[in-house]
Simulated scan of single mutants.
Amino acid sequence: MPRPFRVAGISFDHMHMGDLLRQVHDHPEAEIAGICDPDPARMAGAIANFSIPPDRVFTDVAACLRTDPDLVILCPATADHARHVETVAPSGRAVMVEKPFAASLADADRMIAACRASGALLAVNWPLAWYPTHNMTKRLIDAGTIGEVLEVHFYDGNRGPLYHLADKVEVTPEEVARQKPSSWWYKAAAGGGSLLDYLGYGATLGTWFLNGEAPTHVCATAWGAPGLEVDEHSVTVLRYARGLSVMQTRWGTFSDPWTRQPQPRCGFVIVGSEGTIASWDYDDHVLVQTRDRPDVHPVPAPPLSAPNRGPVEHLIHVIRTGAPLHGPLDPAISRTGQRIVDTAFASARERRELPLAG
């Protein structure tokens, strides 16, 4: 029987760590080699959910790496992404960083350089990259169904990052209010805010839809409730050679899109020269109109198939076979998204349109 594929999870700052470890736990050929966080209390849920024994629980990264993982999943606060990758990359282990890519383009380039120096694989996971609707949208674009892509419209977010835990377990408003003053999500120095949390989704998948094309200029504005260090709503306009695209991020949607879609709906609308596609998060179909069939009609978006149904399964396949990374997970695509995010952040601060950074 072949050796199980071993995965280590380091840093529980982001609640997605629990979701990713569940994918490891449920994979028939994988095992959790170790988990690590400086605060043992933050690992308690994963220890209980996945029956992780004490000898696989660490507060020291170096000790965790000695468990000989094939893949290291990192879920630190955004501002700590580069430091964590630079710590792990010299081991040569494959690294998957949970979105967003980084707090800045300079940090993203540090991460790319660290992995290149050791030959370690670097992937950036964007959960929206695994939604059947958005994958169907990419297939329709590549098939020429809507012609040349002219505009990408994106609106996404949730009620706020503290309203849910791993597995989308809901948190009460009272507990949210208690945590908010000390949470890294609401600290500027930690990389908090809706723009840094969600614009990378739209910018990265938008770049994927555009086959890697980058905008020339970016103009953004952002708003946060009085007393907050970070934004809760941002609007970004991207100027391309052929027109404009618009992306909004929102902490404070009327409902979480995984329970019921709010209005505006969360997801994408793609406008092409020969048609349009509405690609909503969590749906089982996209809505299409073309010149040959101008009435809006549904096109099924079937579930993804193995070995590409999610990031853990996909990376096991990539590492074992040398297959290419799924589009948005590729650091080259994610780097263009980071260029957009950096420029948007600076534009909102300076209150003017800026040429694309980097």
Rank of each mutant, 00 (worst) to 15 (best):
I73S: 12
I141Q: 09
A44P: 03
A46Q: 01
A44Y: 01
P69K: 04
H84T: 15
N49L: 07
I73Y: 11
A120K: 04
P100S: 07
A41P: 01
T133V: 12
A89I: 08
S91G: 14
D107V: 07
G119R: 02
P100F: 05
P54N: 05
A41M: 02
D68I: 10
C75S: 15
L128A: 15
C64W: 01
S51T: 02
A82P: 04
G147T: 03
S51F: 01
A117P: 04
R110M: 06
P54Y: 00
A30G: 08
T145L: 15
G92R: 04
R56G: 00
A82S: 04
A41Y: 00
T78I: 15
G34K: 01
A106T: 09
M43G: 02
R110F: 05
W126A: 10
P69N: 06
A77V: 09
T137S: 13
A117Y: 06
L122I: 03
D60S: 09
E86M: 13
T137A: 12
P28I: 02
A143R: 12
T87P: 09
A89Y: 14
M96V: 14
A108Q: 01
I32Y: 02
D55P: 04
A44Q: 07
S51G: 02
A62E: 12
L128C: 15
C64L: 02
A114E: 11
T59Y: 01
K138P: 15
F101E: 09
A120M: 06
N49M: 06
E29V: 03
G147Y: 04
H81Y: 11
G119P: 04
S51N: 05
K138Q: 14
L121A: 09
L128R: 13
G34A: 13
R66G: 14
D39C: 02
A103Q: 14
G144P: 07
V85K: 06
L140I: 10
V88P: 09
R83Q: 12
D55K: 02
V57S: 05
L74Q: 04
